Simulated scan of single mutants.
Amino acid sequence: MSMRLAILCPGQGAQHAGMFDLLRDEPQASAFLAQSDLPAHLQAPLETVLADSARLYANHNAQPLIVAAQLAAWEALREPLTAIAGAPVLVAGYSVGELSAYAVAGVIEARDTVALAAQRAAAMTQAASAQPAQGLMAIGGVPADRARDCLARHGGHVAIITGEDTLIAGGGEAALQAAAAELAISGARTSALPVGLASHTPLMQAATAPFAAQLAARPLESPGLTLLAGVTGQAITDAVQAKALLVRQLVEPIQWAACMDNCAERGVTVALELGPGAALSRMLRERHPQIACRSLADFRSLRGALAWLQRQAD
């Protein structure tokens, strides 16, 4: 078959103590992690962070950890993957994973992206600290419009649109709890996510100026392959647009359902999620079952992932 491969980069919530295990014996991955100086961007030594769930899920550690793991995996996979499938036709990132997607597409220098993730996390943590406790909540089993109206009544916001009857909400904890109680009457499912700030909502407005300043200090390039913007679900055309959309992403909802539909419309036949976790591959498989989707989290080694890709190419 003629493979048209998409690379997917997830966000926070699925990080775990073994998230670097697949990479430890991969020279390219180890070299990338050394060059990115990941430990300098964490609030404690790496092994301490990985062993402590409170530190692991803390925003200031989670964002650089996730980006570092994804880009280290990409460094190890890029050459053998290209030999099997050619260059990816598309890359898309979900929440902080969009930083990784920018690096995969050549918009941001990969080794600098871990530092940028730490700076993004710092700006968002500072914005959240000036407000009451906040977070994210998954909502399912009710039409998205009804969930949006309910959230608005209680002062919550739509953060990520994942389907016709599923979304991620963001806001103050009190607003989310009140919305959850009302939605439960309609039979909706809700669950709090392990993210302690209201990403992709107006509550992050104070983070936009410092993050924009960090982006302005870096040279950004136009994408070298099709790169989808989270806030539009459409392809990014140049470096100026890329920079603006990445700032907007802090305070505007992520259109992940539109990103998935764009994958299908562009003829993607195979998608590989860089992990940690497998939420994006599961969502894409459910929405567009004709696309073969797997995550690195499904395999015991990078060689296993490459063997699966080879079978898709045969």
Rank of each mutant, 00 (worst) to 15 (best):
A242K: 11
S222L: 07
R285Y: 05
G140E: 07
R303S: 12
W308E: 00
P210M: 00
T125N: 08
A105E: 01
L56F: 10
S36W: 14
L33E: 05
A279S: 15
V231W: 12
V114S: 01
T269K: 12
L228R: 08
A206N: 01
T82R: 14
A40E: 00
A73I: 04
A307I: 06
E221C: 09
L284M: 08
I168A: 03
R294E: 01
L116W: 10
S2P: 15
R4C: 01
E182I: 03
F211N: 02
I66S: 03
R148W: 09
H200R: 09
A278S: 14
A216D: 14
G196L: 06
G224R: 15
A118P: 08
Q249H: 15
D238G: 10
E252F: 03
V114F: 13
A217M: 04
E286A: 14
T190E: 00
Q70T: 01
E98F: 10
P289D: 00
A239L: 07
L280M: 11
A159M: 13
Q35Y: 02
Q119F: 03
G155T: 08
M137N: 07
A235D: 00
A51Q: 14
E173A: 01
D314E: 12
A257D: 13
H200K: 06
L227S: 05
G163P: 09
G170I: 07
D52E: 05
G275C: 09
L228H: 11
G18Y: 05
L183P: 10
Q126G: 05
L246C: 07
R266K: 15
A83R: 15
W74C: 02
T208M: 10
L33V: 12
A229S: 14
A239Q: 11
A54K: 14
R153Q: 11
G277T: 09
C259M: 09
L22V: 07
L116N: 05
G97M: 06
Q241E: 11
G93T: 09
P39N: 00
S2A: 02
A244I: 04
P45W: 02
Y102I: 02
A110K: 15
G267D: 04
M260G: 08
L65M: 11
R78V: 04
Q241G: 02
P88S: 00
A159E: 00
A242G: 13
D238A: 04
L296N: 05
G224N: 07
T201V: 07
G277N: 06
T208I: 06
L90V: 07
L309C: 06
S295L: 11
S30T: 13
P132D: 00
L90N: 05
E75L: 04
Q205F: 06
S281R: 11
P219D: 01
F299Q: 03
L5F: 10
P202F: 03
A184N: 14
A83C: 05
G171I: 09
L302H: 12
A159T: 10
G11H: 08
H154G: 02
